[in-house]
Design a protein around this nucleic acid. Structure first.
Length: 603
RNA sequence: GAUCCCGUAGCUCAGCUGGAUAGAGCACCUGCCUUCUAAGCUGGUGGUCGUUGGUUCGAAUCCAACCGGGAUCGCCA
């Protein structure tokens, strides 16, 4: 439905040509963009059809091209180079498309009625969010927006790992060294404060390990036997028993963390429709696992532990419940998935945005749910993204090389400010207006930097490059947008407005305005936009959209540089170029919205 | 050891459902602001697409092996 519109128009015409010329039509035709060194808009490679035509490549291409010019209104002319049929599409078609794109939001597809949950951000509550979370969150947020633009009903979900040994470690350390310190008393952001005590825990633990080792204990035993760790484990036990004091401390410290996370999310510009807490879900799944045993899907070992055998599927046996009946991560994930589909009965898909180190876990999880017979299991998807490396190598929390998300955002915004002050184009802006703008520009730099790379690939985060505002960056795109808006403001002052009227792609009106190469290049890229969005939605790949947006903007800048708009004396041409500019602006704005990036009216 | 992912210009990345002479950005060299925002535009330098074989009219793209990097393989999460 949202395949390339031009191809949709051309395909029947091409098939018809083959049928009439050679008596048989191909089922599909692989169209490609014409390479810039040849004349044409779209190209068909006829090599695959030589058997069908029974003629040589040049003859086949020429015959088909001739037929298209005769019978397909939108084909203006053609040329043949080797087996390549280069087709020139009539200006009227491009103009009609532009007119349609100007009047409609072609990057908003009609509702599919399909409900999709996108889960992203699954932080532990013992430490602040870092660069890795940032990639995860921006990716999940963008995928949610892209799916919305593609017409789906999106539910954004977050799962917070609020219980477990990790938070107990922070709690123990705080109780021991905290002296009642709070975010208010210390001025520290809540998540930072709790993270500080996690570090304190680790320091003391290491010290105690060293002491134990000095006392002759084997290193691996020592690491499991420190008094402070024992204390944390005891606290976890008390938590599970529902000890009032422990629960109160736990709730209090997690509360601090949520305030901190929420501040970070707010600056990131992301939000959630549903927040799940592990403390409320960690017991789920036990009954489901037992039911699975009853159904014969799982099996029990002599020690009482429950397993699934995935060897037939090329995987291993996997334990689902401990011998003592306590649950595991997998148990919990099974239960949580089932409950979510009960909670949202209309939901057809659920996307987990989680790093690729958990590829195996999700493979097994999905397989298990399928074996349990849930029809929706086919709608489960692990959006697996690659790790973020630093120029110095891997991020290691132990080595303190983790890039804090808050600090990172502050840094890019400061850089945007520095650049903005240097250029000093905004002398009439108030301080508050400047703050808003620099925030927008800095965040664009960061988000675009993280989103322009194929999500599944491991990526390198170069801090210097991430604050770059030139070239293939978010601010470059924002800048183009702002320039267009400036143009449009001036045009309105001058009393100009889009006044051009055309037809539809199916019935293009005749227009005597001959497109300039620069205009045509921009329109062609705009024309591909909906197909690119569709592709990005199918592949859950914001990078595809990010890269195409850049292509559009680059082509527009080239046009802007060499073709007058407001200075064009011919009113019809001026109106047409304004409409072209306005359309670039609104499509780019929508595409950037899909990436979670805002665009400024001025910069 | 097994399984999975990745290897494209000095650096960071596109391109990968097979198609024409492999593209961007950064960096480096070059030109363009009395003209619609120079956070811009123009030109140039820069490649055995990890290696070898295979499939094909045609391979960066598909297949195999190998080399290099990473991840996972816990009754952890």
């Amino acid at each position: 439905m949202f395949q390339d519109r031009l191809q949709a128009l051309l395909l029947p015409a091409v098939q018809n040509a083959f049928r009439e010329l050679f008596g048989q039509a191909p089922d599909a035709v692989a169209f490609q963009s014409t390479r810039p060194e040849f004349e044409g808009d779209i190209t068909i490679n006829v090599f695959p059809f030589l058997k069908l035509s029974g003629k040589g490549p040049e003859q086949t291409a020429t015959a088909v091209g001739g037929h298209l010019v005769q019978h397909a209104g939108i084909v203006e002319r053609f040329n043949v180079v080797k087996g390549f049929l280069n087709i020139v599409i009539a200006d009227a078609h491009w103009q009609a498309f532009l007119h349609e794109a100007a009047e409609h939001d072609l990057l908003q597809f009609p509702s599919t009625g399909q409900q999709v949950m996108v889960e992203y951000a699954s932080p532990n509550t013992n430490k602040p969010l870092h660069l890795g979370h940032a990639r995860n969150i921006f990716l999940g947020d963008s995928v949610g927006r892209i799916l919305q633009a593609a017409g789906h009903d999106v539910v954004r979900a977050q799962i917070i790992n609020d219980r477990g040994i990790h938070i107990c470690k922070s709690m123990v350390a705080w109780r021991q060294f905290g002296n009642g310190e709070t975010p208010e008393s210390s001025g520290l952001k809540g998540d930072k404060l709790v993270g500080k005590y996690y570090v304190e825990f680790d320091k003391l633990h290491k010290q105690q390990v060293a002491e134990l080792e000095a006392g002759g204990m084997a290193p691996e035993d020592a690491a499991k036997s420190t008094p402070i760790l024992r204390e944390a484990q005891e606290m976890l036990r008390q938590w599970e028993e529902g000890d009032a004091e422990v629960r109160a401390l736990w709730a209090r410290m997690n509360g601090w963390v949520y305030d901190g996370f929420n501040a970070t999310y707010a600056r990131m510009g992301v939000g959630f429709d549903k927040v799940y807490y592990e403390s409320e879900t960690y017991l789920l799944g036990k009954q489901d696992v037992l039911d699975g045993v009853a159904k014969g899907v799982f099996f029990k070992k002599p020690d009482g532990s429950i397993w699934v055998d995935n060897t037939a599927e090329g995987l291993d046996e996997k334990v689902l419940m401990r011998g003592d009946g306590t649950s595991l991560y997998m148990t919990q994930d099974i239960g949580t998935a089932i409950r979510r589909f009960e909670e949202f009965p209309a939901m057809q898909r659920m996307i987990y945005t989680v790093g690729n180190e958990q590829d195996y876990h999700f493979k097994v999880l999905f397989l298990i749910l399928k074996k349990l017979g849930y029809a929706w299991a086919d709608g489960l998807y692990h959006l697996s993204y690659g790790m973020v490396d630093l120029p110095s190598g891997k991020m290691k929390s132990r080595e303190g090389t983790v890039v804090d998300a808050d600090e990172l955002m502050e840094e890019v915004v400061q850089e945007a400010r520095k650049m903005g002050e240097e250029l000093s184009k905004l002398d009439d802006f108030s301080e508050a207006e400047k703050d808003v703008l620099y925030e927008m520009v800095g965040m664009a730099a960061l988000k675009y930097f993280l989103l322009k790379v194929d999500p599944k690939k491991r990526m390198l985060f170069d801090p210097k490059a991430s604050i770059d505002l030139q070239g293939h960056t978010g601010p470059f795109i924002q800048y183009t947008y702002a320039r267009i808006k400036s143009l449009l403001r001036k045009a309105q002052v001058a009393g100009d407005g889009p006044s051009w009227s055309g037809g539809t792609p199916e019935q293009p009106t005749v227009d005597n305005h001959q497109l300039l190469p620069e205009e045509r290049a921009v329109i062609k890229l705009l024309h591909q936009f909906p197909a690119v969005l569709n592709d990005a939605a199918l592949k859950l790949d914001p990078a595809a959209l990010a890269n195409h947006t850049y292509e559009v903007v680059k082509a527009y800048n080239s046009f802007y540089q060499s073709v007058p708009v407001l200075k064009e004396e011919d009113a019809a041409k001026r109106a047409f170029r304004l409409e072209l500019s306005a359309t670039v602006a609104h499509m780019v704005k929508k595409a950037m919205w899909c990436l979670g990036i805002e665009v400024p009216e001025r910069m």
